[in-house]
Nucleic acid binder design. Structure first.
Lengths: 203, 203, 203, 203
DNA sequence: GATGAATGAGGATTCATTCAT
DNA sequence: GATGAATGAATCCTCATTCAT
């Protein structure tokens, strides 16, 4: 039924994909510096020269790897939101999916760390570039909550930043501290605390 | 009266201190890999050989630099707590000081990032080692809050983790995203949200 | 009447010619090492594989390019001589044409330099191979001059070598020193000096 | 008698000298491209890093090698001239010494060829830079000859260029054609021809 | 003890050549 | 025959570490 031209990527695209997958594996396992292009090539099942045909540099290859990870995360979180309309449900869903993504792809944290560590001068890390690109959409949702009287805090921006920081912190701490537990398991409890606070409200 | 050994650092100790200060500057400015031992030696005003007399290798020097930063942060946060007894005030103070520390020493974030990026295999990063070492003390405080009926959430551990993640996320996001604003300025608002939630409580 | 095989170059011969022309351009512009076979193929309007169908490797291609240049020079100089019979006029003509050739094809100097630089071990450079192949013919002319009492010097061989060295030196110096003036313009003056000397004769 | 400080170069200068000598050997034997820095280092009896301590690049090392050769040649030719005053004798001496130099250091020709072949874009080759730097001095000598009525040709510049081209051509042809005979042996005959011409003067 | 010249292992990158299509 | 994607050998250079002075 499916015509090959439409649904199958060309051989070249497939090669590129293979290389990116191998690169993500190696880079997240060994870090940027300690990863040899040779090893990535071998893991991708291609010659070293082929890697350089598709990506001008080790650096470019790495950045493409991070970009892909970021796009994957972004899609994983955002594609889930279309089916629900209630803003609060969207928040819950997005947070849960975000945590889930890192449970499934723990190496992604390493990629972000490596990007920051090795390419510090290259403008803002892609993680934050993507975050900024979605900011307005999320702010709009917060404003709808505020209009409905559901937001206790005055400034939607502050709530947004808080949740952003919390998620970032949770995911990175989790991975960097070497915890092997599931992040998503903490999802409900985190949401409860962030929504209603950790202290008993003033009577 | 005072014996010199106790109160005056020896020339050697001073040298070591100078090297660590220079190392912190260079490592946080350029990252571990791009920092030359030559440059650190020069900045410390000593010969390269002297650096190697005090630290067996570049790795050890780096780790000592991070260790010192971590000890500084730890002292800056904890030394402030002795004067107050109210647990809640202690929390507030600790969080404020934590954020303040990174406002004053923003390069510290880079050191932690670099440590994780380059020495991933070396057990847990020092940041988390220190965090773990203080965990019991903080948990005790949370339990006192719970006993006093001030804690809304059932599990002190979850509240502790939440705050840990939030602070970590705030500080790292702040630096990594390249924001130049003051972190401490967000302190009050963050505490209000984390204590009482971002949503209006169920009536 | 004319059979196509004789007067029309086959498609393949045309291809080969195109490649040699492109090669001469690229090799003289960039030098042997810095010339990519890719670029020559592109300039010739063929695929890289086609270049390798016609020339077993880059080295062979380069040598064929030099050979062609040498044959061109040789023809340009020698074809002019048939119309005159006076040996002295032949000399004058040959020298003028030699200089003219390099005015028109300055890149040829580069090819000779490159050949020597890169293929030093490959027997004698083609320039000198060609020179040697014409030597006997020129010597014969000198002997006729000597027989006619027109040669001041005793040894025709020495005169021949002198002129050879002079022409070689003039052409190469001219190009290598980056002079943009015309070589042929110096032709008359050079001949006067070499024929009758630069000093006033003894009484 | 001689104090070591004055007559002995420092260890570092000696090292640099050693490297340059080894480089001249290897570069003229194998050409720039085919020479490995490793091999030069080994031949100089130092580690590879030491070569890079003294010369930032392979390129810089090569150019320094050529520069040294050029300075040697220049000194060899010019230092001989102080003892004589007669311009004609100076010419004879200079030409003889020039040819002699290349008899003794035939590899020097290779260095010049290599420089031109590999660094074509780098302004004028050093050979011609040196030549230009001496031009005025030589012209002055020619003018003295002209004033004394010893110069047949009107333009001293043309005579100078002729001799320059001839010497260059003789030396390079000699080496490039692979001749093993002595250049200096041709010295007298060359001078006779260039001074008084190859043809019998008009009655 | 202090110095910095010397060392050499390690790795990214290029490009001539091959060969499946 | 023609093509150009794939290959991998070859090599310059960096920089942590050593050790003679």
């Amino acid at each position: 039924m499916d015509s090959p031209q439409v649904h199958r990527s060309s051989k070249s695209e497939q090669r590129q994909e293979d290389i990116l997958v191998a690169a993500a594996l190696v880079f997240s396992a060994k870090g940027y510096r300690c990863s040899d292009v040779d090893e990535i090539a071998e893991k991708a099942g291609v010659g070293k020269g082929t890697v350089y045909r598709h990506f001008v540099n080790k650096e470019t290859l790495f950045l493409a790897t991070v970009e892909k990870a970021m796009a994957d995360l972004s899609a994983f979180v955002n594609d889930s939101l279309d089916k629900v309309t209630c803003p609060l449900t969207q928040f819950r869903l997005a947070m849960a999916r975000y945590l889930q993504y890192f449970d499934r792809h723990p190496g992604t944290v390493e990629l972000f760390i490596q990007e920051r560590a090795e390419f510090r001068r290259h403008s803002k890390p892609l993680y934050f570039v993507y975050q900024a690109s979605h900011r307005e959409k999320w702010l709009e949702l917060y404003r709808r909550l505020a209009d409905a009287g559901q937001l206790r805090v005055q400034e939607p921006e502050q709530a947004l930043d808080l949740i952003g920081d919390l998620l970032f912190g949770a995911v990175f701490s989790h991975r960097l501290a070497g915890s092997s537990a599931s992040l998503a398991a903490r999802s409900e409890s985190m949401m409860d605390m962030i929504f209603y606070g950790i202290l008993t409200p003033h009577q």
